[in-house]
Design a binder for these strands. Structure first.
Length: 381
RNA sequence: GGCGACGUGGCCGAAUGGUUUAGGCAAGGGCCUGCAAAGCCCUCUAUUUGGGUUCGAUUCCCAACGUCGCCUCCA
């Protein structure tokens, strides 16, 4: 018995068949602002994967990094007039409170990018030694021409990748670059940004290298499952894979999993648009278990819209489930397992539990597999 | 190209594993009227295509075709 999951790179639902110990890496947050529903959705999906794998008897080592060395963090710290690590520490603590409130399982480790500078130095050295990177103008660039499989995670054409990079101000016209898609592994810092010494010059890491270095340090050369929000597929994961396989010569990731974006008011929930629903705010109004249900009511591969019906509906659902405790013995746990193994069909799992609860069965074991513990009375509202 | 949603009469739009697939608009006919309008009555036309599951599918599954949405955001 194993789960079947959609693999972004293979573009189909395939059996996910890791060994007894499952090595998972999910790209975590850049801690410069509060956790919103989009973040929560991503990590709740991975939490349920982890729960089902444990349920199947696996030991799961899940790494979720914290990107505390990055441009948006520096910008926000500059704006607030605080040190970037102070800002990061505060936001990271908020994020952890949200994750605890939503009852996510502890992960194996949550390493910070700032802890990985020496690993990153070593990693870049490996990439250079193996001939996949070059130094120019104080920066180190990955040489995409040495990686013929570049693009096999996202399945974008060269032209599309270049266009996307250009739209993002990805410096495709940087004169130091040999190819427009070459990306930075290391680059000089601005005056008010942190800087570290290296043999090829002072500076700071590029934004893809941290995850590769941390994955190697924490989990080894090949990991079973890697992912995050679908917004990370390109360029982040494309670049990660290229540089990791360049450094180690081994397959980096066996299975890629990405969680679809959450929308509000017709547009992707994002900091730049400001159409955010914050988890900590929501928690003051609703039981966190209802929030979890409202998120997993959607399939992880479908984009979905946050609307006002969601919380009342799932509050009612939580009440129905809680009211079932002490009822007749139920077989619904097996139905939920079967739904989760079918590409993580959480909507189907919820429907099965709804039906069982309506039939007077005790659904607490099934709810628990989804991270919803029915023991406590229902909270706010 | 990828992922997802959808595809019901001329148009819009409900519903459904099983005798007649709502309703509205439009159209045609009639009543009424000096004529017309309004109103009322009647009539008319549909489940994209091809497979599959089933005793039976429009409904469930697969494929094709078509329409729409999303695909740079940093979760």
């Amino acid at each position: 018995m194993s789960m079947r999951l959609y693999d972004t790179a293979r573009q189909e639902v395939v059996p996910f068949t890791p060994g007894e110990t499952v090595l998972m890496y999910t790209c975590g947050i850049t801690p410069y602002d509060a956790t919103h529903l989009g973040h929560a959705a991503t990590f709740l999906v991975y939490d349920i994967v982890q729960r089902r794998l444990i349920d199947l008897g696996h030991t799961v080592k899940c790494v979720r990094n914290v990107t505390d060395v990055d441009d948006p963090l520096f910008a926000k710290a500059r704006e607030l007039g605080v040190h970037y690590l102070d800002l990061a520490a505060g936001e990271e603590a908020r994020f952890n409170r949200d994750m605890v409130a939503l009852n996510t399982l502890p992960v194996y480790s949550t390493p910070r990018a700032s802890s990985a500078i020496s690993d990153i130095r070593g990693f870049i050295g490996m990439v250079i030694d193996r001939g996949f990177a070059y130094v120019a103008g104080g920066s180190v660039y990955f040489d995409v021409s040495k990686s013929p499989t570049f693009g096999e995670v996202s399945h974008y054409s060269q032209e599309q990748m270049i266009e996307f990079a250009r739209q993002r101000g990805g410096k495709v016209d940087d004169p130091n670059k040999r190819h427009p898609l070459d990306f930075v592994l290391w680059h000089p810092s601005a005056d008010d940004e942190p800087s570290w010494e290296t043999t090829w010059g002072p500076g700071r890491p590029g934004w893809h290298i941290e995850c590769s270095a941390l994955a190697l340090r924490e989990l080894g050369t090949t990991i079973d499952l890697h992912g995050g929000g679908s917004d990370l597929i390109f360029p982040h994961h494309e670049c990660e894979r290229a540089q990791s396989e360049a450094a180690t010569g081994e397959q980096f990731v066996k299975h890629w999993m990405h969680v679809a974006m959450v929308f509000k008011d017709g547009e992707k929930m994002s900091k730049s648009l400001g159409n955010l629903v914050f988890v900590d705010k929501l928690r003051t109004e609703w039981d966190p278990r209802s929030i979890r249900l409202a998120v997993i009511e959607h399939h992880y591969r479908n984009e979905w819209e946050w609307d006002d019906e969601l919380m009342p509906r799932n509050h009612a659902r939580l009440l129905a489930w809680t009211g079932s405790v002490g009822g007749a013995e139920s077989q619904v746990l097996d139905a939920v397992r079967e739904r989760l193994d079918d590409d993580l069909d959480t909507p189907g799992a919820l429907r099965a539990i709804d039906a069982a609860a309506a039939a007077g069965e005790d659904v607490s074991a099934a709810a628990s597999l989804l991270g919803v513990e029915l023991g406590d009375p229902v909270g706010p509202r």
